[in-house]
Design a protein around this nucleic acid. Structure first.
Length: 935
DNA sequence: GTCATCACG
DNA sequence: GACGTACGTGATGACC
């Protein structure tokens, strides 16, 4: 039935339901696996009571509307909007997706939209329904929605079972509904952090609005207010009041991706509803609903409390590659789509012709809906010989790509269906190129990373062996290695089915192991706020890439080659014979055997596992005082590095279509939470030497644009000052002092005015040493001073800043006791070696000291990156690269200043509201036509 | 494949 | 008292 006159729309405020359910019920957990389900249980009860209450009523259309994401246009208007909200409780977070599934199970339309508040969607729907001549009931008690009341729109407080109509609103606000926003704008709202006018509450606001008729009139004629204080407040805070009005005014023009007609009331499908309730193990409500629907209640087995996933525990159903389905026909695929809809989630894996998501082609898609139940949809497999006039033809038993994607797209894009995968950033990018915007997603690699960082790697094969006791089919066995390697499209379909479907099956099983653990290990927030939302952000940065000028690199490469040739000749002369300058082994023999150089400190020159002489830069630096050769070698090596790794190799990575270099970020690579950049690594482009820095001149902006670089200043030291609570350091940061000079001054008693570069340099080395878990030996080597002297520095440092020593002791003790350390945002980094004997323990101790600091810094910039796309959505700007404490953007030149201002705010406030640092976070900015100029 | 070296934060 | 040490990464060329 199309929505129109005589129709009655119910709009349920989903978030209100959830929070009410959460707070009304004790923290229940699901028996079988410990998953928290208290709020879901309450939510289902409320939905059931709602449905029962409306039987025989006149409701024709209904929807539950949810909030999604935290950033909306209101945050752009006012960055502190809802800023004092507490973070969501740890045990509620995993229940949120389940409330969506519950709604779907009741067969009630479930709607949410990224970047839009539920309130605005409700407002838009209410307006549309009113215009169509229908009636609306908003089920909520949120006063922010009261502005919508009137003209056939009422609210219903479900708890008190009280209808709020125009009179009800007038009772609450003292004005008619159409003036409610005016009152709210004046009175403000501490819950949503809407400022309003200081000292004015609802009562006074209503009085003023009734007297002047409207807020605009009031502000224009503020001079006429008799009370001097009130008058002054209104005149002084005019802008703030106007801003407040924009914040509280609901938007009736939200661009909805559905219509009122989609919300028609539907009967629940008993099987689906009871299936969901049984899965949640809700006995009472399952029984009640089964009786009501007149069907048999599914049996919920009494299970013992979840045993931890043991390595030796056999998998639920054996993994059998022969049992997977080869999907050839649309009808077959439609059945899988149906199965996915019933489940509410699916594990997915895409097979492609290569590893480069930018250029590879989609070959097939595998799906799994429950352990052992998986399929493979081959799409572009080929067989036959590569002939002179004919290429290989498509294999039999495949579906046309378009047809398969058309069937799959609705579930892949359905916000109520969770897509599970291993390293889904890859699949997300591939599918994106075929016009499929996959969401929402869960990534088993990142689940493992949040749970197990520091314990092991997070590749699928290793996870499968460890957690499922199963070694999956190796890709090598299908495509081979090296020169004879083939692409996946040439793998016979029958073989591909086993391999690909097994991957999806394994992924699903891993998800079932990891997902409940998230809550048990208390890393749900880490996963939900630092891992999952970062996936699409990184995907977009990688797709965007950065423009690299080939000619610049090429020219530099030629210049380097010339210089190297000249140096090589000189080196051979100094050595007395030609040799491979690039071979450390040959060099060692020349230096120590043929030239018989000895180390200035008298130590023996040997080192290294292979027994070869060490010829590292530090060694050559020491030898440079005795002979000319080592210095020439150092020069040659610098050029060789720049040429091979940068000016030459980088050119290979310029994408032929885009003219840009597209790195790949590994989100679960570094144990501390840092990202790693590969193929190519754009996080180690030279900067420290003048010659190396020139490489950055090849990283450029498109014509008319500039590159903008923003980097956190001394973020790790600031975090150290905060976590170790060092008042002297904190004060230095607050006062914007040169932190290394301030440290030196404190340590050596030198006044800041008399600071010398040498003393400052030493203090700087100590500051960094502290972050790394300092030792006398390490500092001595770094500063090239005797170890006793270095130890003296360290002792003095600890004396002056006793909090540092305490921090180190406490952190080490924590790691020994718990087996992990953590960042301020709750990220856990495991330290399995900390209690080992031997040198390993030393490494582990220093890593444990460093990890919370490096990791917290990594978390901060992750938070900034996650918020960035929405914050700069209205600007002609793109985020390109992350280099641990730096973000690089490309932006239209005339918008650079605006971008810097906006991005800086996001970065400096990134820790809030979860962590409120006691030192300021400072971000420095630069811009220019190349990375060299911007940095 | 492993090692040494060196680029970055 | 001896031991071996800065933290975290990735790419390259030499060598086995």
């Amino acid at each position: 039935m199309a929505f129109g006159k005589g129709c009655h729309l119910h709009l349920i405020d989903g978030s209100a339901f959830i929070f009410r359910a959460y707070h009304a019920l004790p923290p229940l957990t699901r028996k079988s696996d410990g998953m928290p389900i208290g709020a879901v249980s309450g939510f289902c009860n409320m939905l059931q009571r709602y449905v029962e209450g409306n039987e025989g009523g006149d409701v024709t259309h209904v929807a539950v509307i949810f909030d999604k994401g935290s950033h909306t246009f209101r945050n752009d208007l006012y960055d502190k909007y809802k800023a004092n909200r507490d973070e969501m409780p740890e045990d509620l977070r995993p229940q949120i997706p389940l409330t969506r599934r519950a709604t779907e199970a009741f067969n009630i339309a479930c709607k949410e939209m990224e970047h839009y508040e539920a309130d605005d969607m409700i407002a838009t729907l209410a307006c549309q329904a009113r215009e169509a001549g229908g009636r609306v009931t908003i089920i909520s008690s949120d006063k922010d929605l009261m502005q919508l009341v009137g003209d056939g729109v009422v609210m219903l407080d479900a708890m008190k079972n009280r209808v709020i109509d125009v009179e009800g609103v007038e009772e609450k606000f003292g004005v008619s509904p159409d003036r409610v926003v005016d009152v709210q704008a004046l009175a403000g709202d501490s819950v949503d952090n809407v400022p309003g006018a200081p000292g004015i509450g609802i009562k006074t606001a209503a009085l003023l609005i009734n007297e002047f008729g409207s807020l605009e009139e009031l502000l224009n004629r503020a001079e006429e207010i008799k009370q001097p204080k009130r008058r002054q407040t209104l005149i002084e805070h005019r802008e703030q009041i106007e801003l407040s009005k924009r914040l509280v005014q609901l938007d009736c023009d939200t661009p909805l991706d559905f219509t009122l007609d989609d919300l028609e009331v539907r009967d629940p499908d008993p099987e689906r509803l009871l299936g969901f309730l049984a899965e949640m193990e809700f006995r009472t409500i399952t029984k009640r609903i089964a009786e009501k629907l007149g069907v048999e209640a599914p049996i919920i087995e009494e299970t013992s409390p979840a045993a931890p996933a043991a390595q030796d525990e056999p998998p639920a159903a054996p993994i059998d590659p022969e049992a997977y389905e080869w999907v050839q026909e649309p009808g077959q695929l439609a059945k899988w789509v149906e199965a996915i809809r019933e489940r509410g989630y699916v594990a997915i894996d895409t097979e492609t012709t290569g590893l480069d998501e930018m250029t590879c082609d989609l070959v097939g898609i595998s799906l799994a809906v429950e352990p052992g139940v998986a399929c493979y949809v081959p799409l572009c497999h080929r067989d036959g010989e590569e002939g002179l006039f004919s290429g290989p033809g498509y294999s039999e038993g495949q579906m046309p790509l378009d047809e398969a994607l058309a069937l799959l797209r609705p579930v892949l894009e359905d916000p109520a269906i969770l897509k599970i995968g291993q390293n889904l950033k890859y699949d997300l990018k591939v599918l994106g190129r075929y016009g499929v915007a996959m969401a929402p997603i869960d990534d088993t690699m990142l689940l493992s990373y949040a749970l197990n960082a520091g314990l092991h790697n997070h590749g699928m094969d290793a996870l499968s062996e460890r957690y499922l006791g199963h070694r999956p089919i190796e890709i090598k066995s299908l495509i081979g290695t090296g020169k004879s390697q083939i692409t996946f499209d040439r793998v016979p379909v029958a073989e591909a089915v086993k391999y690909a479907a097994e991957d999806a099956d394994v992924t699903l099983r891993l998800w079932q192991v990891f997902k409940p653990q998230l809550h048990v290990k208390k890393v749900t927030t880490v996963y939900e706020t630092l891992e999952r939302p970062l996936i699409p952000v990184l995907a977009r940065m990688e797709e965007t890439g950065i423009k690299v000028d080939r000619d610049t690199l090429s020219r530099m490469s030629g210049a380097f080659a010339q210089k190297m040739a000249a140096l090589e000749e000189e080196i051979h002369g100094l050595a007395g014979r030609p040799f491979n300058v690039g071979s450390p082994k040959q060099l060692g023999e020349i230096l120590f055997d043929e030239l018989s150089l000895t180390m200035p400190d008298g130590k023996a020159p040997k080192k290294g596992k292979t027994g070869a002489y060490g010829t590292g830069a530090d060694v050559l630096e020491d030898l440079a005082t005795l002979h000319d050769l080592p210095r020439r070698i150092l020069d040659w090596r610098q050029l060789s590095k720049l040429k091979s790794t940068y000016t030459d190799a980088l050119q290979e990575h310029i994408n032929a279509d885009t003219g840009r270099v597209h790195t790949s970020y590994s989100q679960a690579g570094a144990n501390t939470g840092r990202l790693a950049s590969t193929e190519p690594n754009l996080q180690n482009i030279p900067v420290r030497t003048e010659e190396g820095r020139r490489i950055r001149e090849a990283f450029v902006a498109e014509p008319g644009k500039v590159l903008v670089s923003l980097d956190y200043s001394q973020i790790e030291l600031r975090i150290l000052a905060h976590v170790a609570d060092i008042e002297a350091l904190k004060a230095a940061f607050r006062e914007g002092q040169d932190i290394h000079a301030a440290t030196a001054s404190e340590m050596f008693g030198v006044p800041m005015e008399e600071m010398t570069p040498e003393i400052r340099r030493q203090a700087k080395a100590i500051n960094f040493g502290v972050i790394y878990g300092i030792s006398g030996f390490g500092l001595a080597r770094n500063l090239r001073i005797p170890q006793e002297e270095a130890q003296g520095f360290i002792d003095r440092y600890f004396e002056r800043f006793p909090g540092i020593k305490d921090y180190m002791t406490e952190t080490t003790a924590f790691a020994k006791k718990m087996g992990h350390v953590q960042t301020l945002f709750g990220r856990k980094i495991h330290t399995p070696e900390i209690n080992a004997k031997g040198p390993g323990a030393g490494f582990a101790r220093r890593a444990a000291i460093n990890a919370p600091i490096q990791g917290t810094a990594a978390d901060v910039i992750r938070r900034a990156m996650i918020r960035m796309p929405a914050a700069i959505a209205d600007m002609p700007a793109q985020m390109l690269l992350q280099v641990h404490d730096e973000l690089l953007f490309e932006v239209e030149a005339n918008a650079a200043d605006a971008l810097i201002k906006r991005a800086k705010e996001i970065m400096e406030g990134a820790a809030l509201p979860a962590v409120d640092f006691s030192v300021p976070m400072v971000v420095e900015a630069g811009s220019g036509e190349s990375w060299a100029a911007a940095h």
